[in-house]
Simulated assay, not measured.
Amino acid sequence: MELEVISNISVDCVVFGYDTNKKSLNVLLIKRYLESEIGSDILVDDYVLTGYHVYEHETLDEASTRVLKELTGLTDLYKKQFKAFGSPSRLMSETDQIWIKNKKFSSRTFTIAYYFLLKTEDVGVGSKRYEAKWFPIRELPKLGFDHEKIIMEAYEDLKIKCLSEPITFELLPVKFTINDVQDLYESILGIEIDNRNFRRKLINKKYIIALDEKQVGVSKKPAQLYMFSKDIYEKMFTKNYLISI
């Protein structure tokens, strides 16, 4: 039985991944490629976000989870629905129109955008089906549709959110050093951070737990390892709407 799609509603997924070795915030993109049926002229050759139309039986969240799983094999990731994109001109470039005609979907498609956070090493990108590839956030290739706009808006939202919630720990190993956290914040925000102030502020957080362990396999002096406690964080920030009298 063929699943029924909603032809003008889709989800697009901005998959952010942090490369701890290169200290780089990246976006996972897939190849969009089309040759003419007559001859071998290349009609479309660029990259896009992973996304697809919503099925009739699905919620938006279910659709985004399905799309992400098809590309990465992962489901249990930090996810945020951050905006809907519905400009009448969002799919009107020449290459977009060629692609739309070939794939037989509506030029007036509304997309609901999500972003996800993971570690780059958690995803194998060898699939020939999607030709997925990681790109640094500041070195994006030629993109189809309005996907550069979607990525940049997701990135701005991520920068704001990482300053108010501990979502950055979704991008780090379970055990990390203070320098690992600082490198990540600098990569996301694109700024240099004063090491001493950052270290002092971080280790004073009750939800940052010092472990009785140090780095192994490093040539320099091994650094102290820490963990983020989600349980402690949630207990500290549980909303209480009761009025104390």
Rank of each mutant, 00 (worst) to 15 (best):
Tyr185Thr: 02
Lys221His: 11
Ile191His: 01
Ala223Met: 13
Ile209Ala: 02
Lys206Cys: 05
Arg200His: 11
Asn204Asp: 11
Leu184Val: 10
Arg199Pro: 01
Tyr207Gly: 07
Asp183Pro: 01
Val218Met: 07
Val216Asp: 10
Asp212His: 12
Asp231Gly: 04
Tyr226Gly: 07
Val216Cys: 10
Arg196Gln: 13
Asn195Ile: 11
Ile193Asp: 11
Ser229Gln: 03
Gly190Val: 00
Ile209Tyr: 01
Asp212Trp: 06
Lys205Tyr: 06
Asn195Lys: 15
Phe228His: 02
Tyr226Glu: 03
Gln224Pro: 04
Glu213His: 09
Met227Glu: 15
Arg199Ser: 08
Ala210Met: 13
Tyr233Arg: 04
Asn204Lys: 14
Lys221Cys: 10
Asp183Glu: 12
Ser219Asp: 14
Lys205Met: 10
Ile203Val: 15
Glu213Ala: 15
Asp231Val: 13
Ile193His: 08
Leu189Trp: 04
Tyr207Asn: 06
Ala223Arg: 15
Ser219Pro: 05
Pro222Asn: 00
Phe198Trp: 00
Asp194Met: 09
Tyr207Cys: 02
Asn195Gly: 05
Ile203Cys: 04
Tyr207Ser: 00
Phe198Tyr: 10
Leu184Pro: 11
Tyr226Trp: 12
Val216Trp: 03
Leu202Arg: 01
Tyr185Cys: 04
Tyr207Pro: 01
Asn204Phe: 05
Ala223Ser: 15
Pro222Leu: 03
Gln215Pro: 09
Asn197Gly: 13
Leu184Asp: 10
Asp183Gly: 05
Phe228Asp: 00
Leu211Asp: 01
Lys205Arg: 13
Phe198Cys: 03
Ser219Trp: 12
Ser187Lys: 04
Ile208Met: 08
Tyr207Met: 07
Lys214Met: 11
Gln215Ser: 06
Lys201His: 09
Lys214Ser: 09
Tyr233Lys: 02
Leu189Asn: 02
Phe228Cys: 02
Lys205Pro: 00
Glu186Trp: 07
Ala210His: 09
Arg199Asn: 04
Arg199Met: 00
Gln215Phe: 09
Lys220Gly: 12
Gln215Tyr: 04
Asn197Pro: 03
Lys230Pro: 03
Ile203Phe: 02
Leu211Tyr: 06
Leu211Lys: 12
Leu184His: 11
Asp212Ser: 13
Gly190Leu: 00
Gly217Met: 08
Asn195Cys: 06
Tyr226Phe: 15
Tyr226His: 08
Ser229Asp: 07
Leu184Gly: 11
Phe228Thr: 01
Ile208Trp: 01
Ile193Cys: 10
Ile209Lys: 07
Val218Pro: 04
Leu211Ile: 04
Glu186Lys: 09
Gln224Asp: 10
Gln224Asn: 09
Ile209His: 04
Tyr207Thr: 02
Ile209Met: 03
Asp194Thr: 08
Pro222Ser: 06
Ser229Ile: 02
Val216Pro: 02
Asp194Asn: 15
Ile203Asp: 02
Lys214Glu: 13
Asp212Asn: 15
Ile203Glu: 07
Asn195Ser: 13
Leu225Thr: 00
Asn204Leu: 11
Lys206Ser: 12
Leu184Ile: 10
Arg200Phe: 10
Leu211Glu: 15
Arg199Leu: 01
Ala210Cys: 12
Ile209Phe: 01
Gln215Ile: 03
Lys206Arg: 15
Ala210Thr: 13
Ser187Pro: 06
Pro222Asp: 05
Asn197Lys: 14
Lys214Leu: 08
Ala210Gln: 15
Lys220Ser: 13
Arg196Lys: 13
Ile188Ala: 08
Val218Cys: 07
Glu186Ile: 08
